[in-house]
Amino acid sequence: MPALTYLHRLEHPFGVHYACAASWGACYATRFDLAVVLAVLANFVAIISGNPLNAYADVRNDIHTADKRHLARAVQEIGARKVLTLAIFEMIFALALAVAVSWKVAIGVGLILVLYLAYNLEPIRLKRRGYAGPVVLAIAAGLLPSVTAYSAAGGQADPAVWLLFSGVAALATGRALWWAVPDRAGDARVGSRTPAVLYGTRHAVNATTQLTVGGLLLVGGGLWFRFGPFWAAVGVVACSAFLLARDLPTARQQLRYGMSMAVVSTIVLAAIPLLA
């Protein structure tokens, strides 16, 4: 698979997940005109721009993690400086698209980019600062894109939607925490104090479970208030399947099984407002 595909984490099933995360808000506002499409595209580019930046920043970590060495090799193949330049160009492009839509979309996309920079780059590098890492990643890749697209599509203030988006953020925090568990050895070796490094694998998996259950309650409540009990049950069942994969020990198994379950739930949550 080409190095650029690896750097952007567009291998199956990530691309579908990013597309759904970028468009969730528009789906719940049920409007897709040109401005909304541009806002969704800005979201998508902003989300994937964080991946080459992360590969650039994590090259020392990834070289010590068996299932992530392909990312380090991709950075080495293209060149670290070129990878960083690519990430910056994509961020500028995402922001330009957002500015073309509205100042609200520009603020939303700008915040996504700021959080990605803070997550990855020194001296802040929130990835190595305990729970700040997964929380910021969930906000940048889950909550903010949803709110940005919802605003662009003319969505009105609705407690049910805020419950739903908050639930999505909780689910994304749990998944970000879970996704970092196989990286524990590589992160510890370079001094990244992730929750799995600080508190151990079992703690991280238990926290993932708790965050997922909390997210399910919020998602279920939001869907119930907005669409009724049937669609709430559909959404909760789809999202809860991820719990079956919480103990997978390697990134390869996580990608094959856990992320596939997560992506199915992402598709279901995007489809519910269009079908209900």
Rank of each mutant, 00 (worst) to 15 (best):
W103K: 13
A72F: 04
L163N: 08
A232C: 12
A169D: 05
I267L: 15
K82V: 12
D187Y: 02
L211W: 07
A100M: 11
W224F: 15
V190L: 05
A42E: 09
I88N: 04
S151C: 13
A72H: 01
G154P: 06
L86G: 05
P52W: 00
F93L: 14
A100N: 12
G25N: 07
G50M: 05
L84H: 02
W162A: 09
E122I: 04
A42W: 03
V36I: 13
D247G: 08
Q253H: 09
Y116A: 07
D67A: 14
Q254A: 13
N206E: 13
H12I: 15
V45F: 05
A276V: 13
L143E: 03
L115S: 01
L113I: 10
N61S: 14
S260E: 11
A57P: 00
R246C: 09
A35S: 14
R60Q: 12
Y119D: 02
L144F: 07
K68D: 06
L53N: 00
A132P: 02
A149K: 05
V213E: 05
V219Q: 07
L143R: 05
A132I: 04
F165V: 10
A233D: 12
T5W: 14
L137A: 14
L71T: 05
L243P: 04
I124G: 00
A271K: 07
R175I: 15
R125S: 01
I124C: 03
A3F: 12
P159Y: 08
A241T: 15
S265W: 06
P2Q: 10
G25S: 10
A153C: 09
Y18V: 13
F44V: 04
A46V: 04
A232L: 13
A152H: 06
C27I: 14
E122T: 05
G50Y: 04
L144G: 01
Y199N: 05
T30V: 15
L198V: 06
V16Q: 06
R175T: 14
I139R: 03
E11G: 09
T250G: 08
R175S: 08
G133Q: 01
A241I: 14
V16E: 10
P13Y: 12
V75R: 01
G215Y: 00
L211K: 02
I78R: 06
L211M: 01
L143M: 02
A262H: 11
F242C: 10
H70P: 10
D33H: 09
R246S: 07
F44D: 00
A160C: 04
M261H: 11
A22S: 10
Y116L: 05
W231D: 15
S102G: 06
L274S: 09
A21Q: 08
V205Q: 09
L274M: 11
A98G: 05
Y18G: 02
R175L: 15
A96F: 11
V147C: 02
A57W: 03
L218W: 00
L137P: 04
D187E: 02
A26E: 09
A204H: 02
L10M: 08
G191D: 01
H203V: 03
G258D: 09
A74S: 07
G215P: 03
K82G: 01
A96R: 07
A176K: 02
G108P: 00
M1E: 11
L86V: 13
R252L: 15
G167T: 07
R9W: 06
G221R: 11
G15L: 12
V197F: 03
A153S: 11
L223P: 09
F225Y: 15
